[in-house]
Computed example of a mutant assay.
Amino acid sequence: MPSSSPRRYRAKPASAGAAARDWAALPRDILSAVFLRLGPCLEIMRGAELACAAWRRAAVEDPGLWRRVDIDVGALASAGLRKGWGAMLRAAVDRGAGRCEAFSGPCDQELLLYLIERANSLKNLHLLCLDVPNEVLKVAVKKYPHLEDLELKYVSSPSDDMLISVCQACPRLKKLKLTFSPCFDEGYGDDEQLVLDIIEQGIPMMSELLSLQLFQCDLTTEGLASILDNCPLLESLHITGSFKYYEMDDELQAKCTRVKNLTIPKYSIHG
């Protein structure tokens, strides 16, 4: 009579080859592919390249890994890098050996000037937590006339027609996002006294612009009409803040309908 007790299986021991696998000896192209999958450069500089000397060489000597330098501000804080992040970002840009095409991260004046000198082929530029005077910022964007994607976060207000300056300097933009940092009038502490960036003048023709986002703005009907007239390919327009208008006539409403995704302030603070 056969036994009803279950059979017991023994796991096969790992082969000697698997146990002795030398991860440091992986081919350079495979290492590069793995590193690229790690995402932002923080994971490489603070993680993978610290594993061994071979991985360190692979990370430092391959410019292809650093075509995109992307540092999340929250990740910097989580890693305890509230200070010293500028040196790390400059090192990441250097590793690109002039091939860096995209940069995203916090930025002060020193880092911005370094980018102009060492990464002059950028197509995508996202400057977050900006600590740069407007005058310096205007000069800097003129160094990148071929930019396709630009984000400036926390531009100081009033911004001295920053929108117009950016459009004049970078006529090939496809995506533009500006977040203005509103100032409070002295002696007041409520939201009604915010000094917002005024969008009321004409902008130059932006024949390739597809997406425009403006945060914390004083929008006027003239400014809105200028944007719609001079951005013929615009698919997405998102503006927050206030909307000073006297009358939204049929012609302007018709222009608005040409934009697939349109968000503008609903209420006027005029008067």
Rank of each mutant, 00 (worst) to 15 (best):
P2I: 09
P6N: 13
R7D: 14
R10S: 11
R10V: 10
A18P: 01
A19R: 15
R21C: 14
W23R: 09
A25Y: 05
P27Q: 11
L31S: 08
V34G: 04
F35T: 01
L36N: 12
G39Q: 10
P40L: 12
C41Y: 06
E43G: 05
I44H: 03
M45V: 06
G47A: 08
A48D: 03
A51L: 15
C52M: 07
A54P: 07
W55E: 07
R56V: 02
R57T: 11
P63Y: 07
R67M: 10
V69G: 03
I71M: 09
D72M: 10
G74M: 08
A75T: 05
S78E: 13
S78F: 11
L81Q: 05
K83R: 07
G84Y: 04
G84V: 02
W85N: 02
G86N: 04
G86S: 04
M88F: 02
R90H: 07
V93Q: 00
G96S: 09
A97N: 09
G98F: 00
G98T: 06
C100N: 04
C100T: 15
E101K: 09
A102C: 06
P106S: 05
C107I: 01
D108A: 02
L111S: 00
E117A: 13
A119Q: 01
N120R: 08
S121Q: 13
N124L: 04
N124P: 00
H126M: 10
L128D: 09
C129A: 14
D131Q: 15
V132M: 00
V132C: 01
V136Q: 11
V136I: 12
K138R: 15
K143Q: 13
K143L: 03
P145G: 09
P145V: 03
P145F: 04
L147I: 04
E148V: 08
D149M: 06
L150K: 03
L150C: 06
K153F: 10
V155S: 03
P158E: 06
D160W: 01
M162S: 00
C167Y: 04
Q168D: 13
C170D: 05
K174S: 10
L178Y: 00
D185I: 12
G189A: 14
D190W: 14
Q193A: 15
L194C: 09
D197P: 00
I198S: 10
E200Q: 10
Q201H: 14
Q201E: 14
Q201P: 00
Q201W: 07
I203S: 04
I203N: 04
P204D: 13
M206Q: 15
L210F: 09
L212H: 01
Q213C: 12
Q213M: 12
L214C: 03
C217F: 07
L219V: 02
T220K: 09
T221S: 11
L224C: 03
L224T: 04
L233T: 03
H238I: 14
H238C: 13
G241F: 15
G241V: 12
S242Q: 14
F243H: 11
M248Y: 06
E251A: 15
E251K: 13
E251V: 07
L252F: 08
L252M: 09
A254N: 11
T257W: 12
T257A: 15
T257S: 15
R258Y: 02
N261Q: 14
N261M: 14
N261F: 14
N261A: 13
T263F: 15
P265K: 13
G271R: 14
